[in-house]
Every structure is written in structure tokens, then in C-alpha cells.
């Protein structure tokens, strides 16, 4: 084993040891997290003011919302995750604080019904198209129609020019 390989091996071991010790140190110290405004807003933007209509907590200017933002900060400092905080708020103030209805109970309709209606509309449209295609033609075009009205226009103008020239 040459000198370089030994050094590399030591380096690798040192890095691994570093990871192990850092992890242990973090687990032992439990240093309170530094929570920035951005971290608070990140969670607050996913929660809605229980008092005002359709205003998310990160932008609501009321005193109550300011307190709720402080509460989010406290929870984050205590090491709660965003999901835990959301669950806490939903348990305290009801599902209306969540940015969309949870997919359970009657709320399932929120996710199912519009899709069913759109699919039904697509099927209806397909049926109409098939029916109208199957219908006996009232006026079948005798030759392939021009690609667009611009081409049609060009043809008409060319014909007119020809006649002018005649």
C-alpha cells in the first residue's frame, strides 16, 4: 500500500468519524432551532386564517393571525414539522384552516365530482361527434376543402386575377 492510499484511507475514516460524532453531538445537545421569518411564512402560507375569509396566515394582517404566526414559530422552535403544525391547527380550529379540504367523508366529492362530470362531458362529446359523423350528409363536400380560409381566399383571389387578365 503506498503512501497516498494510506492517506486516503485515513481521510475517509476521518470523514466517517466526523459524521458519527456530529450526529451524536446534535442528538445530545438539543440546541433550540433558529427559526427564521421565512420558515414561519413557509408553514403559515399553508394555513388559512380561521377568522378572515380566504386569507392565508402568512399575509393576514390581523392581531389574531400575528399571534398564530408566533405560535407557529414556537412550534417550529420546539422541533415540530410543518405537517404536525398543520394537524394541530386543524384539530384546534377545524378543517377550514387547511388550504384544501382533506380527502375524506363528504369532502371526497370535491375531488371526485368535477372529474366525473368532465369525463361524462367528454363521453357525451364523443357520442355527439360519432352521432353527427354517422348522420347522412346534408352536403358532402365534393373535393377536399382547402386547409384554411386563407388558402381559400388565395384561390378566390387567384381566380379573380385570372379573370381580370382574360
Amino acid at each position: 500500500m503506498n503512501k497516498h492510499k494510506i492517506l486516503r484511507l485515513f481521510g475517509l475514516l476521518a470523514v466517517l468519524a466526523g459524521f458519527v460524532f456530529t450526529g451524536t453531538a446534535q442528538a445530545q445537545d438539543q440546541v433550540p432551532l433558529v427559526v427564521t421569518d421565512d420558515m414561519v411564512n413557509q408553514v403559515a402560507s399553508q394555513l388559512y386564517c380561521p377568522v378572515c375569509e380566504n386569507i392565508s396566515l402568512d399575509v393576514c394582517p390581523t392581531q389574531a393571525c400575528e399571534q398564530w404566526r408566533s405560535l407557529i414559530r414556537e412550534k417550529l422552535e420546539a422541533g415540530w414539522s410543518a405537517d404536525q403544525i398543520k394537524e394541530y391547527f386543524a384539530a384546534q380550529y377545524g378543517d377550514r384552516v387547511l388550504p384544501q379540504p382533506p380527502n375524506r367523508g363528504l369532502n371526497r366529492l370535491v375531488y371526485i365530482l368535477p372529474r366525473v362530470m368532465i369525463i361524462a362531458g367528454a363521453l357525451l362529446l364523443a357520442w355527439i361527434v360519432m352521432k353527427l359523423r354517422a348522420r347522412k350528409p346534408s352536403s358532402v363536400p365534393t373535393e377536399a376543402a382547402p386547409q384554411s380560409s386563407t388558402e381559400y381566399l388565395t384561390r378566390v383571389e387567384e381566380e379573380l386575377n385570372k379573370r381580370k387578365g382574360e
Binding site: Y48, G94, R96, L98, P101, V110
Partner: peptide, 20 residues
């Protein structure tokens, strides 16, 4: 309209935010 329906049926309001 669903929040109104939800309130009538379950007594609980729901929010439809931009995400939805």
C-alpha cells in the same frame, strides 16, 4: 359553492385555496 354545502351537511366549513 362546496363550502356552503359542507357547512349545511357537516356543519364544518372548508377552504379552497389557490393550491386546490
Amino acid at each position: 359553492n362546496f363550502p356552503l354545502l359542507s357547512e349545511i351537511v357537516t356543519g364544518q366549513k372548508v377552504t379552497f385555496g389557490p393550491e386546490w
